[in-house]
Design a protein around this nucleic acid. Sequence first.
DNA 1: TTTTTAAATGCACAAGAGTTGCATGTGCGT
DNA 2: ACGCACATGCAACTCTTGTGCATTTAAAAA
Lengths: 143, 143
Amino acid sequence: MNDSPSSTDSIKDTIRAAGLRATPARLATLQMLREADSPLTHAEVADRLAVDGVDKATAFRNLNDMTEAGLLRRTELGDHVYRFEEIGPGESDAESHPHFLCTVCGTVSCLDTVKLTAASERASQAIGEVTEILLRGRCNSCK
Amino acid sequence: MNDSPSSTDSIKDTIRAAGLRATPARLATLQMLREADSPLTHAEVADRLAVDGVDKATAFRNLNDMTEAGLLRRTELGDHVYRFEEIGPGESDAESHPHFLCTVCGTVSCLDTVKLTAASERASQAIGEVTEILLRGRCNSCK
DNA sequence: TTTTTAAATGCACAAGAGTTGCATGTGCGT
DNA sequence: ACGCACATGCAACTCTTGTGCATTTAAAAA
């Protein structure tokens, strides 16, 4: 069998632990995001679930509900589309990692090591508390 | 007189130099952006011009046309709204400065001094060429 | 100054992302 | 196995942005 029951159960547990019901649509949603290595758009998730007969509104509501429940993180990378990624077990919602969006092909990459210089940290502190860093440009495949 | 004719003429010249006709709607648009100290949204410009009888579609078209002509820069800061700012005379379109968006009040600040650490530069180069930096968080007024 | 014409405008309508109201269906605690 | 709050489906709706087309106008030519 391809779907190991253990991983399905772990997904169920994760959803229930967040105070939500483990419905088929939510299982599929979280599994999709767990297998993806970059944030997925609203539409990508909805389209994929549509073949299982899941309504667009349901897909959107689940994504938002799971975000509110602390399971997902919603990011907006500047192309007028919301993207979602799973928040790992230990991870907190606040400590999100930087993202890179290719403005040509739309590919998103997660970055771990990107930081601002000390001087930049200070300059930005003067304005507010930075919780998110987003870089945009052209990825190497699009040069 | 408040509207110094010289500045109006300079705006006209700027627009014509970009290969566009200096229409009243465009004069007003560019003047607005020139006086603003942070990028203005599509809607902000359109609403302001509406009192002069300028159509919303015209306002949107002008913003996009002037962007294409290299007079303006269009940025998307993650709230599903386009913002525009003038590109200074010497400035090129490519070298945009970083922005900070307060996710609470929506205020946008332009940053000049923010840079990535050398290590971060290297890490991001591995993925692509970064042309734009966006920081999000809570501005000091919203803490 | 008048004429000419391509560019710009106004109006109405359309597309895409995301949301919401409401009746129906279902997970899951008892 | 039962019941109820929660979740879903469907349709209509909002909000931002873009488009088609007839009319007007900036600005170059005469």
